[in-house]
Design a protein around this nucleic acid. Structure first.
Lengths: 241, 241
DNA sequence: TCGATCGATATGTATAGATATATTCGGTGG
DNA sequence: CCACCGAATATATCTATACATATCGATCGA
């Protein structure tokens, strides 16, 4: 028996229709493939105009809950590929948000012409000007992130005037450079001798590696690899349709 | 100078208006806080009815690009916290999509009353009925994922009739159980002796651990821990506003 | 039997107007 | 000066209608 809530002044007609249909789908009463009532049937059920139920159905289709086809009607969609929203906050804000003390050091800074490896990582022409940085982030004194970053000076020449000895590159970038696209790759790896020394862990320790490339329009802005000791950092993602 | 594309038969009026406004916002021409033209102004600009521009504006607000207030008008919203869309596809589909051979084995299956540890992981009352599964996934014969899963039989009693010896739990769940929320936690860890044996790697090898809990409405549906050898698996996330 | 055509039907898109509601702004009286 | 009231205004929601478009299915002809 499908649920049709009685008319009430508490919600709009749109909300009531949408809530009813969503309830029927999410409860499993209408399984994937089930044919949702036609618009004209809903018009009769709710005694309203077609525009109102059309908006509900169009929005449900946008949300991915149903699929619509002309002439055939609408059916409950089978759940999509699982996706989750991954939050990638500013490390400083994240650490301080947990009440811990945040520490930052610039370990290395070099302006240079892009080598082949740099060019591949950043997606620029070899020999174009870049800024290479290596930084260490601490929480309550313990290293918890090693940052290897390349900045494309052709796209953001302002970066050359910033020395990054006090302001972390990510904080500076978020504040000054708008970006239009980013790509992340998350994997697990072993710390090599150099990284282990800098993170103050034993060589071979499991680490979470987060690589990110960021674009503005067609131009590559920055490429970064963040290495976190596995026991000190985890990423969270959440999804609610 | 704001962009107003000339009328063309290639797109609907709705799409044209939406594309224009999105272009003005994403290009930075209309910065956060900028007051978007009133609906009645857009009606004049595009010589159309208010319903059409209202639909555009309502959808833009739903998408988070603008914020609307009665009497005050609409303004460009300030960018959200950095977020990326993480794809967590069906392993079978992912492996076969790359042209590799997918393999699946059920290692363990037990229907039992939830122990304390199970209850904590799954978010149910102790002693409620659950199904515990352990599975192994292979790509071209090599193990690349160890799956430890709990299913809440109070929510999905149908799961008891499925033996999961051929169909992986995730594939079955995606097809038959709609879910309304999920939470993921990603970290790096060392493989213990048992996991290492099952994944055919040396103990202590770096692994990517993905924990997921899934709800339907208020009820917990399933909790799963996927363990991947670090060198065989990586997660990708992408973001474009 | 196969295939082209055509009508029925459900959704897609847009119009024009009406009422409702929240919020700002200006004035008014204590 | 401030509290309060009411007008103006922009969005929120809904109705009734119209025509466009895709597609299923039946009918008819080669």
């Amino acid at each position: 028996m499908e649920s049709v809530t009685p008319a009430g002044p508490s919600a709009t007609l749109y909300q009531r229709i949408r809530r009813d249909i969503e309830a029927n789908i999410l409860s499993g009463l209408w399984p994937p493939g089930y044919r949702v009532p036609f618009e004209h049937e809903l018009v009769e059920i709710y005694a309203c105009s077609r525009m109102t139920v059309n908006k509900v159905m169009t929005d449900l289709a946008t949300a991915g809950l149903i699929e619509r086809k002309r002439r055939a009607g609408s059916v409950v969609a089978r759940p999509r590929a699982q996706q989750a929203l991954l939050s990638i906050p500013d490390l400083k804000a994240e650490v301080e948000g947990r009440g811990a003390r945040y520490g930052y050091e610039l370990l290395y800074r070099e302006r240079r012409a892009a080598r082949r490896a740099d060019a591949d990582r950043l997606g620029v022409q070899p020999r174009s000007p870049i800024l290479a940085l290596r930084c260490r982030h601490r929480t309550d004194g313990r290293p918890f992130a090693l940052e290897d970053r390349l900045l494309n000076l052709s796209e953001i020449p302002e970066a050359e005037r910033e020395d990054f000895s006090v302001v972390p590159p990510n904080t500076w970038l978020v504040g000054y450079v708008p970006w239009t696209g980013a790509e992340h790759s998350i994997s697990a790896c072993h710390a090599d001798a150099e990284a282990a020394a800098l993170l103050e862990i034993e060589p071979g320790h499991a680490c979470l590696s987060l690589e990110r490339r960021t674009w503005r329009g067609n131009g590559s802005v920055t490429a970064v690899t963040m290495l976190h000791p596995g026991h000190l950092y985890r990423l969270f993602a959440r999804f609610t349709p």
